[in-house]
Design a protein around this nucleic acid. Structure first.
Lengths: 248, 248
DNA sequence: GGTAAACTTTGACCCAGATCAAGCGCGCGG
DNA sequence: CCGCGCGCTTGATCTGGGTCAAAGTTTACC
């Protein structure tokens, strides 16, 4: 296991790729300067654990690039993914010592970290940060509740379709790819990780993906590269309102 | 359907039963005065809908007494409860027009409502409110994620045990009932509502409750009055660490 | 006090998804 | 170039919880 390196900030907040969507989105130039003082970057390799559940966290931060997962594990080993962290998502909880979940990088990842104590103090002085964090937390809560519907009431095929459409949607907003009608993206998760997200076994995930492919809902190139020829068809399969405000 | 009544505030914030746990918990006397100006109370009867999903909300507020549920419904009628609102819990989302969920009173309920616009403005001026709301939202997010594990990975018996232990725990913190060893409480939900919370059918809920009773994990008086003779036994059945910090 | 409606329990049966078991294909180190 | 390991697919079988059905119990309202 190579140790992750702490780098001197490789770039300014000003031209940070997540400048306008992360927890710092609303900050003024002067507020950014204060953040820069407690900030540092960390690189993680695919597969590396960022934080273990229960561990003391001395930082919070934002995903700059790459993808991480948030998972919970029972004593007997059953695991449930409870969050998928994409660029601009926030990691850690101000006002709490330890992490409640395992955070694992599933791809190589760069995080913009803030030392926890100073960040918490900064938050008290800087409403722009607290406001933005509240907004992001409310969004995450909505996402978590939407996922509760998926876990509690959807069948395996609908679950897979739901996951694909969420990844597709987030991927689309990320690197603004218009692609009229069809969507193309890479799955950032193994079949097993998908199973952990969906409350299924990896075998069922594999079977349902094969079924969606067979039925023409998706096209696969290799195991990970997905094309969705008809997005509203996918949404139907997910059991959601078709075209739920997608063309906004 | 009798129309709910809008009452002139029946009591002062100062002696409000949820004064120190609701969104106003951190407010100073002077801040409370400002809140009082935009506040009013509403009573709901058991079974009454507080807000329909999608409806425009012109207020936010706190549950003062009674219990409400937050549910999501698919077009074909499948429903999933995504939240249980107990006294001091916050209803509504600042910065969003409509409600994403149905909110339904399951018992007679009193809500302390704030007109939405003025509340939002107040929040910008009053860090104590925003801070507290952030804290409460983070707690709800943790609860939602814990519930994702329940929905995704636990079997029916563990689900029921999890629900019982959550209700017992929240009930205990509510009206500080020490009751060494044994816990006693009333189920605030029908079997069907429990099923909607747990992603089960009401038949399975009924069967598993009977099984827990048969096995001596719980005692029932009538359908709703529950005694838990051994809390750590219940936690075991739920698949959680036994005595997870319960005796704090 | 009686009847209807709502809620709950229990039984019989079935099926979606879990489990167990092979085997494939690709990338990597030797 | 080979062989090993990991991720993935597919098949066979099993089972927990869903579905359908009936009947018991409580509550609410005439």
């Amino acid at each position: 296991m190579m140790q992750d390196e702490k780098l001197k900030s490789p770039h300014d907040c000003e031209d940070c790729p997540i400048r306008h969507r992360a927890v710092c989105a609303r900050c003024e130039a002067e507020e950014l300067e204060q953040l820069e003082e407690v900030k540092y970057y960390r690189n993680f390799q695919a597969g590396q654990t960022v934080i273990w559940s229960g561990d003391k966290m001395d930082f919070v931060g934002s995903v700059v690039s790459g993808i991480a997962t948030l998972t919970q594990t029972m004593e007997d080993g059953r695991t449930q993914m409870v969050g998928l962290l994409l660029p601009s998502d926030f990691v850690g909880r101000p006002g709490r010592e330890g992490s409640a979940y395992d955070v694992v990088a599933t791809t190589d990842m760069v995080m913009c970290c803030f030392r926890k104590k100073p960040f918490e103090q900064l938050m008290e002085r800087t409403p722009h940060i607290a406001q933005r964090l509240l907004e992001m937390t409310l969004d995450e809560l909505d996402a978590a509740r939407e996922w509760m519907l998926v876990l509690g009431r959807k069948n395996a095929r609908e679950k897979i379709a739901s996951l694909l459409s969420i990844i597709a949607r987030r991927d689309a907003t990320l690197h603004l790819r218009p692609t009229e009608g069809a969507l193309v993206f890479d799955l950032p998760l193994t079949r097993e990780a998908m199973a952990d997200y969906l409350g299924l076994t990896l075998e069922t995930v594999s079977r349902q993906i094969s079924a969606l492919k067979r039925d023409g809902v998706i096209l696969l190139e290799g195991k990970r590269h997905v094309t969705v020829p008809d997005v509203s068809r996918l949404m139907e399969e997910a059991g959601d309102d078709s075209d739920g405000g997608m063309f906004a």
